[in-house]
Design a protein around this nucleic acid. Sequence first.
RNA 1: GCCGGGAUGGCGGAACUGGUAGACGCGCCGGACUCAAAAUCCGGUUCUGGCGACAGAGUGUGGGUUCGAUUCCCUCUCCCGGCACCA
Length: 867
Amino acid sequence: MDERYDPARVERAAQDYWDSRQVFAAREGVRGDKYYCLSMFPYPSGRLHMGHVRNYTIGDVLTRFMHMRGANVLQPMGWDAFGLPAENAAMANGVPPAKWTRDNIAYMKRQLQSLGLAIDWSREFATCDPEYYRWNQWLFLRMLEKGIAYKKTGVVNWDPVDLTVLANEQVIDGRGWRTGALIEKREIPMYYLNITAYADELLEALGELPGWPERVRTMQANWIGRSVGCEIAFPYADDTTAAMGGAGVLKVFTTRADTLFGATFMAVAAEHPIALAAAARDPKLAAFVDECRRGSTMEADIATQEKRGLPTGLHVRHPFTGAPIEVWVANYVLMAYGEGAVMGVPAHDERDFEFAGRHGIPIVTVVRSKDGAYERVVAPWIPAYGEAGVTVDSGEFSGLESDAAVEAIAAALAARGLGARRVQYRLRDWGISRQRYWGCPIPLIHCPACGDVPVPDADLPVVLPEDLVPDGSGNPLAKTPAFVDCTCPKCGGAARRETDTMDTFVDSSWYFLRFACADNADAMVDARTQYWLPVDQYIGGIEHAILHLLYSRFWTRVMRDLGLVTLDEPFRRLLTQGMVLNHIYYRHPEGGRRSYYNPADVEMRDGVPVLIADSQPVVHDGLGTMSKSKGNGVDPSQLVEEFGADTARLFMMFTAPPEQSLEWSDEGVQGAYRFIRRLWKAVHDLVAQGPVPTADFGALGAAHRALRRLTHETLAKVTDDIGRRYTFNTAIAANMELLNAATRTSTADAVGRAVVREAFEVIVLTLSPIIPHVTHVLWQALGHATALIEEPWPRPDPAALVREEIELVVQVNGKLRGKVTVAADATDEAIRAAALADVNALRFMGEKPARKVIIVPGKLVNIVVAS
RNA sequence: GCCGGGAUGGCGGAACUGGUAGACGCGCCGGACUCAAAAUCCGGUUCUGGCGACAGAGUGUGGGUUCGAUUCCCUCUCCCGGCACCA
């Protein structure tokens, strides 16, 4: 064994061993229970970032741990290869997205391999492989047949200069990122997946996911947003009937039908038919509607913009009193939610209250507070106004509790055909059409004679041409006759191929299924999914808590209903890892753009951050996720080159528990490296003393017995930390303590060396999931002929854990005042007596008698005296 | 704006079910080794008072429940994630 730790050499040796024996290739039905551990596959952006390193190390630790526990593990890897960055790169460099993407995959794969992950690479695929995305297309056609996929219009960000649809991130302050032009909302036909049909099941099944973090389940439940309420139809008054060219009703949804008699205005979205009809005859209104069409489609923007509205001059009639109610156009009502219209009840809804106040709309109190919080609603708003109570001034429905009033009003509305109880979801159907090139083509053909015709299964996949280069003005597919021009499969006439591609969330909604059978060229999935699925442990960023995970749960159910798989939930356990953060430093020259500096190039001098290169100060802008734009990234490959993959992995796992955000620290990396070197040296020094004979652990001196106890206590703790708690940081800390204790223990005699070796073996075995390379080599150095990867996870020796005495804390009135040592099996009476004899405790009790003595077994004694 | 989460020494974090606050690591201080430095090793390190034994205070803010609260409840502040076309 070398005296010096050489990470490059150690890592090459370990990786060569694993590769040559293909130890991570997974086969169905061998060994014990299957364990499918999956980390969210990366987008091939060019280089691995630290978030990836963290994600994949967490997955690898669990994979290797379960392998040692005897499970038949599968840890696959692939590439989420379609998406916008490839098009942006193409515009910047003129390289086709396909080439850029595949080059990135090749580079990042080498980076991943350098980390020594226990991945079965034989199952690798990229979502831009036609053999993968053909099944997106195939399943889309099945959904079309079943009515799960359908066509309707949707709103997009339209750049009027580039004549192109922009993604939300390409809209900055309501303007196009390249053109600076004011963005317009534009309605275009799109394909949707009917996820709302599964809303109830997706919501209820959250209760059957105990392996998911509570917060993710809460976020999904809120996102689905099931609310039970009432649909109410307000018949058009004569003016509206005239404007709309016929009689009709304005429909709204409300959870507070009990406040119906307090409705003093109606608010509709700018795109609502009544708004458009009114705008046609009112230039001021037309200008306002036009203005509402500008700006981004993002909910955060809409929710934070100033709430504005304009009256239409048109009216609807109250369904019971027939009283006219004026219809307003409001920029905070969204056409996509519910009916695109709401009833305004200023007295009992805060937003309506504000709107009414600003526009001089009357406030009519129709609910009386049950606890007398108010009599009449008057400004300013208090939360009690919005709470349930007893109805007043509501005609025949007065004097009812809110719940009962909702029931009675709903029943009466139903009897008149003007409403009904209804369940409404906040969740909207999933629009999957993207007016973009680098994605999975939607397999449809538009025929002038036959309409929209599905591409026959035999013609799948519709292959995306890989040599196009987008230029920022629309979808290049639409300008490629070889792609667009086709014949109608029905009538054989000339037709146009659909040029929209699918949302990339489609690609990631079932890739976890494909890993079970990636080599099947004839079917989307096969029986091997029965064996491997569900994913036993899924690991990924918290930023995917809603969309990706919800879409995957939905897609899995669609495949179930089509008879392709038998499972409901794809992910049994979920671990949401926190972000990797680093400091942000910049300078902002007068009139210029901010320039960012990497924290590695900055140092603190007299409490001021300065750029090392020129010693001039820079501005510290807090912590942020590592990103190219903030210039605060750290390159994993440089890290691996300098310190080795084990140091990178150890630092990542030690610095914070997986669910928390992790702060980058160069000193922390040094500390991790130092620990590995200390471990290496400790093992080297022991081995250098010659072979260690087996010793009788039955008759040990006190120091050796203490180390053995610590060894087995540590083993028990680390097993629990990795296997149950997923707190790898505390598992590492416990092993650091054990190494500290072991290196302080004398190895002068054979017994001492045996006890110390046992401690080292526990450290090497239990840290092997985290630092697999160095432990692989150290295991051999400790004299083992078999490879560490084939070793089972060790079990603590109960005999080593036995204690004769325990130390208890003595408190007086909850404050620590002393400590007593008692026999491990001492009775409560003996503990009480020992505590009451403690000198310091007596000092604080003074003359006062013990009123009560609380004994917490194994922990403490609290003596309660009158204070 | 709405939904979800977080805040503990100089720093990252630990304290798992309401029971010793600060494990472990970093940094810093002192010492050993060295011509010297780096590396390494040993000791110290929440704050305040005290030579010390020890005492008091202390887990973002303010309140509450309890023999006992970092942990449970309410209030406020700041930070982070998501908001449907970034992935």
